[in-house]
């Protein structure tokens, strides 16, 4: 999936955020020397291609009182992990879920599901719900609570040199 130079410029000026003005796409257009319809069309095309997932906001879990955020990890039968992963990803309290490689012997887990809640007890109860769905296909699990944010910057597209 390639972006042309104009798409990349749109990404560069919007990846930190969209201007909070009545006509944000016109504001982006002005910065880039484009027209408002061009910017809207290009953003629509990037959404179509999956480059942009959505336009919106990311709430801060901590500020909303959801301070117990656990990365639940599961060792699931390789033949069943994709099918079961879809079910786990669909749970309302799971915000991200991925299949990842194991790193044996230290790390036997291949399914990751981020679970958010206001207390560890709440998160543990949700973890039990996941365990019930996985059933016998799961050979082991763990949960890793975050104890501190050490760094948090958005993912940035770096300017191409030259």
């Amino acid at each position: 999936m390639t972006l042309d130079a104009t798409d990349r410029r749109i990404v560069e000026v919007t990846q930190a955020g969209l201007p909070l003005v009545p006509a944000p796409f016109a504001a982006v257009a002005e910065v880039l020397g484009l027209t408002e319809p061009e910017v809207i069309d290009r953003i629509a095309a990037m959404k179509e291609r999956g480059v942009i997932r959505r336009i919106g906001g990311a709430p801060n879990h901590y500020k909303l009182g959801m301070t117990a955020n656990g990365m639940s990890v599961w060792d699931v039968d390789d033949g069943l992990v994709d099918q079961l992963g879809e079910k786990i990803g669909a749970l309302p309290f799971v915000t991200h879920s991925y299949r990842r490689p194991r790193a044996l012997p230290v790390w036997p887990y291949n399914l990751f599901a981020m679970v958010h809640g206001s207390t560890r007890d709440e998160v543990d109860a949700k973890r039990a719900e996941i365990a019930a769905i996985l059933g016998d296909a799961c050979r082991g699990s763990d949960i890793l609570f975050s104890t501190k944010i050490l760094k948090k910057t958005g993912l940035r597209l770096r300017r191409k040199e030259g």
Binding site: V11, Q15, L18, L20, R53, G57, A58, P59, N60, L155
Partner: peptide, 16 residues
Amino acid sequence: GYLTRFGPFYDAAALG
């Protein structure tokens, strides 16, 4: 700080 950011959410892999 209730919103950590507001704008387009880019798929990192799709950006190349």
